[in-house]
Design a protein around this nucleic acid. Structure first.
Lengths: 209, 209
DNA sequence: GCAAATTAATGATTTATTCAAG
DNA sequence: CTTGAATAAATCATTAATTTGC
């Protein structure tokens, strides 16, 4: 609840002593590039160098660079947490008793979960994270990715995904037409569908060392 | 390499042998509705549920839903990004007409600060977990910081900038202009201005409370 | 009007980053 | 410092729109 509405600098005070640094596109581009290059906490010297360079594109001080990196780093971290927490929270709310994919129901250790699984790696915050979801989705992956052929053809990738159209998402989402055509069959192994042509090359990326 | 699937399967052919999913209007409608409701990266379970529901309107698999959300999210962001950039660009370029500010187009986590100072690198939550940063920031002034107050918890960082220079700043970043800039005054330039014009208001920044 | 040709959308894959646990 | 986990960005590929010549 911090009022940050510090003066509404009229859109005309560009050269004036604005209250804050106003990074230009070029400046941001360079900063992000540096960040991507691995710079997280630049040294004083680096900051000076960067500042010197960025000054070509507009007024800037060392502190701006310093803060930029600090904020960017912090923001990147929190971005994840908050993001995932946000929608989880939302989803959970509309989902009183979350359908925790019962671990025992899993076919075997041949995990066949979804590829997108969970979002939150490990929030860790003092919030009651939702381990259920983590487990539900986290189980997947790391199945077996045979086919050492690195080519583009992935034969039998992990067939994680769909167990079947089970479940009720939520009336709010689909109205009442939700057909609970889901038995209890659970994941009868990756029984595949009739089509049997389901290959999920989802997260197969592993080629790059 | 590819089969000649001359299957002339006009829109609405569920038995299609097409190589890729072709969503029906109903499916798209539901998906967009879910997206509007905030679902961005559905969990495995959600995907199954959604898929189940969407199957009423045509053949579909979990991966299709997964991809749909991925693509839709990415493209929405892309569109929005472009939009907001255009806005800022115009705004920064000059301040002629306050265009139709599209609230939805504003970047959510961009550090871009328009002349209006609308975006602030606000870390938000537990940003107090960076006490060192303060110190580091203060340290930037180095020799000139003749105002040794503040600092609640001083470890020993009161020295030079960062202790861990993560990342190498090389010429490849800026070319030769960098070296020339760093070969001398280092951080003296900003840290030591007599007029205090640029004296890092580091602590002021935070002092705002 | 209708198809071949061309362009715009968008489904499906691959690649690059990021944070953080070990 | 290395590696695991999980995207999001970038890219490839195929389908739908549309444009154009007849």
């Amino acid at each position: 609840m911090e009022e940050e509405k510090a003066v509404v600098c009229p859109s005309s005070c560009s050269t004036a002593a604005s209250s804050r640094w106003n990074p230009t596109k070029e400046q941001i581009g360079i900063l992000e590039g540096l960040y991507r290059q691995g710079i997280r906490t630049p040294t004083a010297e680096q900051i000076q160098q960067i500042t010197g360079k960025l000054r070509e594109f507009g007024a800037i001080e060392g502190k701006n660079v310093f803060y930029w990196f600090q904020n960017h780093k912090a923001r990147q971290r929190q971005k994840q947490k908050q993001e995932s927490f946000a929608y989880f929270s939302r989803l959970i709310h509309r989902h009183p008793p979350p359908p925790p994919l019962s671990p025992a129901a899993l076919p075997s250790n041949r995990v066949v979960c979804a590829p997108l699984c969970l979002k939150v790696p490990h929030v860790g915050l003092n919030d009651q994270s939702y381990p259920n979801l983590f487990l539900a989705g986290g189980a997947l992956q790391k199945a077996e990715i045979t086919a050492p052929e690195k080519t583009q053809q992935v034969h039998e990738t992990l067939k994680l995904f769909p167990l079947h159209p089970t479940g009720v998402l939520e009336e709010r989402y689909f109205g009442s037409s939700l057909t609970s055509a889901s038995s209890e069959t659970e994941c009868g192994e990756e029984g595949r569908n009739e089509e049997g042509k389901e290959s999920f090359p989802f997260f197969n990326f592993f080629g790059v060392q």
